[in-house]
Write a protein that binds this DNA or RNA. Structure first.
Length: 577
RNA sequence: GGUCCCGUAGUGCAGUCUGGAGUGCACGCCGCCCUGUCAAGGCGGAGGUCGCGAGUUCAAAUCUCGUCGGGACCGCCA
């Protein structure tokens, strides 16, 4: 039907008779017998010189047969890849007519209400931006698959219909027709199956896996998303990180053409202390500065009782932050759990302008300025609280004060390692809560402390972070049933409950489970950052808005009574308030 | 479940604070003109439930309340 793509024609093709096919991007009429038609396909645009009696309009689907010709002098378009040439003596065949599109199919659609784009996604996809983003996704997939196969991994598909599991994210459930009243769950991840593949001797498994979680949607979260999921036998942390790193760097290089540097590692403790988060954005500094000892003997009541005091220096930001904005920032800090926030502006003479300056001694002020390297015009933000809250709140403030858009700046990957095995305490039971999941292996040198000091036990768990986004996480798993039960006991899960909740998963481990560990990372998140997009919807062909309702198909919809009957289901009337 | 922001021709906006007739602006669309344009140009035209519903008022796009839709975030996401 066609001999060439629109965007690939060059001066080397001059003189050739070609047929191209695509959509009419624009038509410019110049009288009875001359018009220019810009023909667009996924590869680009080429100008066709046609007789103006031909009736073609925007988005008509046509083929054009004609001669590739050098454009006359003075009519070359330097802004177009094919701007040196045009197709002359063009003969047009209309394959499909088209109504005018509801929004412009060029970069101007970047400003169009996203719902309009999503409602007509098939038109949005014609735009270069979306073509590029989906092709980036494809490049990422191809590079990852090649990297995994090359490293000896076996691609295995795991079931989409699986039992519900009590832990983790809310699941989508699917009613069973053959056993009315029972349900499958769609996988939050292939976690259970991939560990059983290790018991099954697959040695190295990977899957470009679809995961489904019935949680609220965000810029970086959809109901359904794709992960590179992998699991490896007879490995230690370094082996897993190395295998993942190869795939990520290969994918990044495939998209950007630049091989990123090897990914540095940072302990969870260091990340929290320096950046106030387990997903630090290393593209900018403004690190958290330790101040607890500075105020060890302070008279300032808000600081005197605090376990941890830290601060950040928003360099030269003082002028931008008036009283109202600072009050708003204080409210933000409080919404993240802080009891308050102290701000100090550095005046021209180096003194502090702050409601609390009068409560701080001369020595304290001097040391504070020194530690934060304060200069006139800087804005200092201080939080005093228990250590975890101090870090997290300042980490949030740091992001608000200095974080560039995702699309800017270099790609800064970092491994966060040595996560604590337990994070926080369950308010209801008083027991520690699993940080990653209940099957995560403690660091061997910390196992002695499991019962005596559980909160200090570090795990063989690790996250991969890129520009402040968590790409994924993984761990070395517990393969020893005795150690597993020790961890369960700490979590308040007795042997009987473990058997009833996780039996189908743990019993196989009695038959000879190899030491193993794995990882999974989100492909949309990686692709979005590589594409310079702030929102994963931009790298998904048919995403859902925050409501989770599909604006194009109308899903979810009601079903026929007969379908419900067959499934043994009845829909309750909506609750009346 | 919560906080904040947004909603005016097909699309992007001005108007809203400070109530006074939708001749509103640009792009797009339709018709005519136009032989070297490329976001072509010129002339003319069509196109509106100011998201929806109440309330206040002589009068509401504008003020108030509610509601629907969208976005960012908190909770949630082992």
């Amino acid at each position: 039907m066609r001999t060439n793509l629109c965007g690939e024609l060059t001066q080397a093709d001059i003189g050739r008779t070609v047929t191209v096919a695509g959509w009419v991007n624009r038509r410019r009429e110049h009288g009875e017998h001359l018009a220019f038609v810009d023909l667009r396909d996924h590869s680009g645009i080429v100008q066709c010189v046609v007789d103006n009696t031909v009736d073609v309009r925007s988005e008509y689907v046509i083929t054009v047969t004609g001669t590739v010709s050098q454009r006359p002098e003075g009519t070359v378009n330097e802004n177009l890849a094919t701007g040196q040439i045009e197709i002359t003596e063009a003969e047009v065949t209309v394959l499909s007519t088209a109504e005018p599109p509801p929004f412009p199919l060029d970069e101007r659609a970047d400003d169009v209400d996203e719902m309009v784009r999503l409602r007509h996604r098939y038109l949005d996809l014609r735009r270069p931006r979306m073509q590029r983003n989906l092709r980036i996704r494809s490049q990422v997939n191809a590079a990852i698959r090649a990297a995994m196969v090359d490293q000896g991994f076996v691609e295995v598909e795991t079931p989409m219909l699986m039992p519900t599991t009590p832990e983790g994210a809310r699941e989508f459930i699917v009613p069973s027709r053959q056993r009315p009243g029972t349900f499958f769950a769609l996988p939050q991840s292939p976690q259970l199956y991939k560990q059983l593949l290790m018991v099954g001797g697959l040695d190295r498994y990977f899957q470009i896996a679809r995961c489904l979680r019935d949680e609220d949607l965000r810029a970086d979260r959809q109901y359904e998303f794709m992960q590179l999921d992998l699991e490896m036998s007879f490995v230690e942390v370094d082996d897993v990180l190395s295998a993942v790193e190869v795939s990520v760097l290969d994918a990044a290089e495939a998209v950007t053409g630049v091989r990123p540097d090897p990914i540095p590692r940072m302990s969870w403790l260091e990340a929290m202390n320096r950046f106030g988060t387990d997903k630090p954005d290393l593209r900018f500094d403004m690190e958290l500065v330790e101040l607890t000892d500075v105020f060890a003997a302070t008279e300032f009541k808000a600081f005197a009782s605090a376990g941890s005091i830290k601060g950040i220096n928003a360099i030269a930001a003082a002028a931008d932050w008036g009283r109202n904005k600072l009050d708003g920032l204080t409210d933000t800090a409080k919404s993240f759990g802080a009891k308050g926030m102290v701000w100090l502006k550095v005046a021209d003479d180096g003194s502090f302008e702050s409601p609390v300056a009068k409560f701080l001694s001369e020595t304290e002020q001097q040391e504070l300025g020194k530690r934060l390297e304060a200069n006139p015009g800087d804005l200092l933000l201080l939080i005093a609280d228990e250590w975890h809250t101090t870090c997290e709140v300042l980490g949030e403030l740091r992001n608000r004060m200095g974080r560039p858009p995702v699309s800017e700046g270099p790609f800064r990957y970092v491994w966060i390692v040595d996560f604590p095995l337990f994070v926080g305490v369950d308010a209801a039971t008083g027991r520690p809560k699993a940080g990653h999941h209940a099957f995560c292996h403690p660091r061997p040198e910390d196992i002695d402390k499991l019962e005596s000091d559980p909160m200090s036990v570090r795990a063989w768990a690790y996250d991969l972070v890129l520009n402040g986004w968590e790409l994924g996480s993984g761990s070395i798993r517990i393969h020893d049933p005795e150690l597993q039960q020790r961890v369960f006991t700490l979590l308040g899960i007795g042997p009987e409950e473990a058997e009833s909740r996780f039996g189908f998963f743990l019993n196989p481990f009695k038959y000879g489970a190899p030491p193993h560990g794995g990882f999974a990372y989100g492909l949309e998140r990686l692709a979005a950052i590589l594409a310079g997009e702030e929102n994963i919807r931009e790298v998904i062909a048919f995403p859902k808005p925050q409501s989770g309702l599909d604006p194009m198909t109308g899903a979810p919809t009601e079903v026929e009574q007969s379908q419900l009957h067959e499934l043994g289901l009845r829909v309750l009337p909506p609750p009346v308030d």
